[in-house]
Design a protein around this nucleic acid. Sequence first.
RNA 1: GCCAGGGUAGCUCAGCGGUAGAGCAGGGGACUCAUAAGCCCUUGGUCGGGAGUUCGAUUCUCCCCCCUGGCACCA
Length: 520
Amino acid sequence: MDKRFYITTAIDYVNGAPHLGHAYEKVVADVLARARRSLGQPVFFLTGLDEHGQKVQQAAQELGQSPQTYCDGLAVQWGEFVRTLGLSHDDFVRTTDERHRKIVATLLDRLHATGHFYKSAYRGFYSVKEETFLTEKDRNPDGTWDPQWGVVQELVEENWYFRLGEHQAWLIDHIEKHPEFVQPAHRRNEVLGFLRSQKLEDLCISRPASRLSWGIPLPFDPGYVTYVWFDALVNYFSIPAALGDPTAVAALGGTAPAGSRLSAWPADIHLIGKDILKFHAVYWPIMLHALGAPLPKTILVHGWWQKDGAKLSKSTGNVVDPLAIIGEWGLDAFRYYVVRELGIGPDGNWTDEGFRVRYNSELANGLGNLLNRAVNMLNKYRAGVVPAADGTLAVEANAATEKTQSCYLANDPQGALIAAWELVNRANLFVEETKPFHLAKDPNQSARLDSVLYNLVECCRILAVLVQPVMPATADKIFAQLKVCGEPSDWRQSIWGGLAPGHQVGAPIPLFPRKDLVPK
RNA sequence: GCCAGGGUAGCUCAGCGGUAGAGCAGGGGACUCAUAAGCCCUUGGUCGGGAGUUCGAUUCUCCCCCCUGGCACCA
């Protein structure tokens, strides 16, 4: 059983509607997953929902529903969202899944048994109204509390803590020795800077069940539920474990069932937003280390989107609705834009104008028009029949293919698109250089015309393979239009010469119809 | 405040000792297979400000200004 390439997204907290940030992370993960599959690697791609916690419990209460009913409803909505994005995930985790809850309990038990937890009292100021402890930051300069907190009282509460401090040294060492552990590099520097400059404080991992019931009970102390990180982060591990992954099962002290279906752990990529870097680069590896499980290979950190240079915000109405964009422009155009516009790392800026420009110049006029003119000329001059094979552009096509491939493998899907477009531009230029429409008027140039047409259509066929991880439906459309067999989701199809002479292609249909200056 | 990274053409950015480059946007042209697409040519910049090192600085040093990110519970 081959170890699969295991990639995850953060699981989304179900306290609102999905937005551009969620869509971006999922699309990028999907692109990397599809690219690996295309290149012949077995993949396990996991995404899902974080459903426990105070806010969910409260929201359900306000609607007069049980938390589970409330979550089930949201899970339907998020499931549709994921389907709309065309994700190719292999599993979908909900932290309320029994399979997840069981593994979390087992994991907590083991760490408790090996002395990683202790119980301690915490004294602090508690807002009864908001059901939360307040910090000094919440306090007014004059020492009073804002009316929004209602009655504030000093309270002593016992909770369970996870010993983090003893793990600081080896974690620094591990990150220093594994430059790929946190990417991009400046995020790695942030983590190292943080770890070197401050002492890790122990992590509170519980809440009294009287205060928060909607969670996973601590198996060794039923008066408490586990709080956030030992629930949410563990999803990456619990699902492989539940599916019988031998490494994960062994770390929990069990043995994998014979003929287990999955070998995935350790994860190859945890794709996350920059806001949750610390938890993934500090808490999570320490949790796994304490358990004796191998650490994930890479925490891949993406930035945030802005719209028109300002922060996305529901309250100011500065939002991008992915579903509306997809409805208007199509899924592949959306996927293309977010991947092409924003590399993994920096923050990005969504502008409707930028979207339109990329759609028109790169998709419609670039790739779409190339296919259209190539197929059209083959139909017009050769009745749609592929002429004898020719390799005039083979070297350049292979170079673009290799470059695209190495970008995908380097977790750089933006670079992959840039590399693929080198071939789009080369092929469009090739038409101008060779002027097939002139050759067609001169019977003596017939062989020359054959070779030009072969090169053009073959480039289109290869491009379908190169863009497939980002735009799977478009790739299928190109193959369908060329009526070629095989799957564009198989990288081996990108080898030059796949088009068979004598093969009959279909009629030209625009891939990305132009939408000029649609009034908003 | 502390730490890190930046401020280069309208926009996004590359260059990092020898008086500046790309893509897009803007302008012009020849063509016509094509979604009036593609191709060719082209207008734009005292390279944040100041001082210094140097024969010479966008590129090195120092100071200042501004921006972004991080400094533990939001994709």
